[in-house]
């Protein structure tokens, strides 16, 4: 049995320790907002927060996730950065098909919680690992800046 702390709740799941965290989150805990895109850590669709850092859940064997605090897209809105990012994403009309956006938002929220006023270069550095086939990149850049302003104004867009 593997014990996990996800979104502030304790879970135990009966899986092998080498199963990627992504599939445990999606199929065993049915938190389907975290997406499967490539399985090799190249697209960022599966991004979650592990102890506050953006990580590729397809690259983390679930055994290694024990004892860590994991946050998924379903709960990231309860953090100031996550809430600001979600709000900015709606205002800037970012999503198209939406499939990659959970990962984009997780990456952006992790960046803003660490760097509340990122430069354009910092946005590029931190989000270029997240692919978007619909090409929403320009709006993502704008929305990160919008979220940053929102956070600095105490959450009001």
């Amino acid at each position: 049995m593997i014990s996990l702390e996800i979104n502030g709740k304790q879970h135990s799941v009966d899986v092998e320790p080498d199963v990627p965290l992504l599939w445990v989150i999606r199929e065993h805990l049915r938190l389907t907002g975290t997406k499967f895109g490539c399985g090799i850590g190249m697209c960022g669709s599966c991004t979650v927060h592990v102890d506050g850092k953006a990580e590729r859940s397809c690259q983390i064997p679930v055994g290694q996730a024990q004892g860590k605090k994991i946050t998924t897209i379903e709960e990231v809105g309860s953090t100031p950065a996550g809430a600001a990012v979600q709000k900015a994403w709606v205002i800037e009309d970012v999503p198209q098909c939406g499939y990659c956006q959970s990962g984009q938002i997780m990456a952006a929220a992790a960046l803003l919680s660490r760097t509340p006023k990122p430069t354009d270069a910092e946005i590029d550095d931190n989000l270029s690992g997240n692919l978007c086939r619909c090409g929403t990149y320009q709006r993502i850049r704008n929305a990160v800046q919008t979220a940053s302003r929102t956070m600095r104004k105490g959450g009001k867009p």
């Binding site: 499967f36 897209i73 990012v85 994403w89 709606v90 009309d93 970012v94 999503p95 956006q101 938002i105």
Partner: peptide, 21 residues
């Protein structure tokens, strides 16, 4: 006009084919 489907696409609620159980 802003997209109607954004709210569910920013919180993981939108259901794609892969999310069916």
């Amino acid at each position: 006009t802003r997209r109607l489907d954004s709210p569910e696409k920013v919180n993981g609620a939108a259901k794609f084919g892969l999310d069916v159980f």
